[in-house]
């Protein structure tokens, strides 16, 4: 008997089932097909203004910085300002996302590099797939547009997100993923990122910048000015 068959047989023996019982199979198929949502906290419920204000508040609570730009064309200037204010060199790595390629980088002094990171980049920019207002979380998906290495190797990670892509909760992101990638399928990697890297392993003292980015800067595109929410 293979290990696989043995383990499954053990489970079935302990459960007192044969495995093929129709009601059990139906229960499993139903749950996988319907994916019931369970309890979704009320805090992110509301209109777009509430959602964006909550998103901003949670992003900042997670020790990331936050800026808004009126439209995507204003993003390069905001990124140049961010790098300058943080005394960082004007370099930036990015993937092949057409939304990034279309931006007027030439109007800034930023030196652009493209493709995955080999660990020698200080700064990178990605476009998020979605943002989650409930917790100030960014959802990023792997692929040539926004390589996964950019989320982890550079010291400073800048993430652009469209206001229309900031949703209330994880469940809404799941629905959008199913729409894009199909039911039961995901991109190779889905990263949910909430703030910059940190560790509390030394005396329970929280320190930013463990192995991933030391700084995370979120730039919200096309929302107008977002009020701080208290």
């Amino acid at each position: 008997m293979t290990a696989r068959d043995d383990i499954l047989a053990n489970i079935r023996r302990a459960r007192g089932v044969a495995g093929g019982e129709a009601p059990r199979r139906a229960a499993v198929e139903e749950r996988l097909a319907r994916a019931p949502t369970g309890i979704i906290p009320a805090r992110a419920r509301g209109d777009a203004a509430h959602r964006l204000a909550l998103f901003r508040a949670r992003v900042e609570a997670a020790s990331a910085s936050f800026a808004t730009v009126a439209d995507a064309a204003a993003a390069p200037d905001e990124i140049a300002r961010y790098l300058r204010d943080a005394n960082l060199p004007a370099t930036l790595r990015m993937g092949a996302d057409p939304r990034l390629a279309a931006l007027p980088w030439a109007g800034t002094a930023i030196e652009i590099a493209r493709g995955a990171s080999d660990g020698h980049d200080l700064n990178a920019v990605s476009f998020a797939f979605a943002g989650i207002a409930e917790t100030g979380t960014l959802a990023l998906v792997s692929g040539p547009d926004n390589p996964t290495t950019l989320n982890f190797l550079p010291d400073n990670h800048i993430v652009l997100i469209e206001a229309a892509d900031v949703v209330a909760d994880m469940e809404t992101v799941w629905a959008r993923l199913r729409e894009r990638f199909g039911k039961g399928a995901l991109p190779r990697v889905l990263n949910l990122v909430t703030g910059p890297s940190r560790s509390a392993d030394i005396e329970q003292t929280l320190l930013l910048g463990a192995h991933g980015p030391r700084r995370l800067h979120v730039v919200l595109v096309g929302a107008g000015e977002i009020g701080r929410q208290d």
């Binding site: 949670r58 997670a62 993937g95 493709g115 995955a116 990171s117 409930e134 917790t135 979380t137 792997s142 692929g143 040539p144 390589p147 996964t148 290495t149 399928a185 995901l186 991109p187 190779r188 990697v189 889905l190 990263n191 949910l192 990122v193 909430t194 703030g195 910059p196 890297s197 940190r198 991933g212």
Partner: peptide, 20 residues
Amino acid sequence: EMSVYTTFSTGPRRPGDPDG
């Protein structure tokens, strides 16, 4: 509320993937 990184991995590198 959330840990910093929650990562879902599904299979190996896909065609066109520059990393992974």
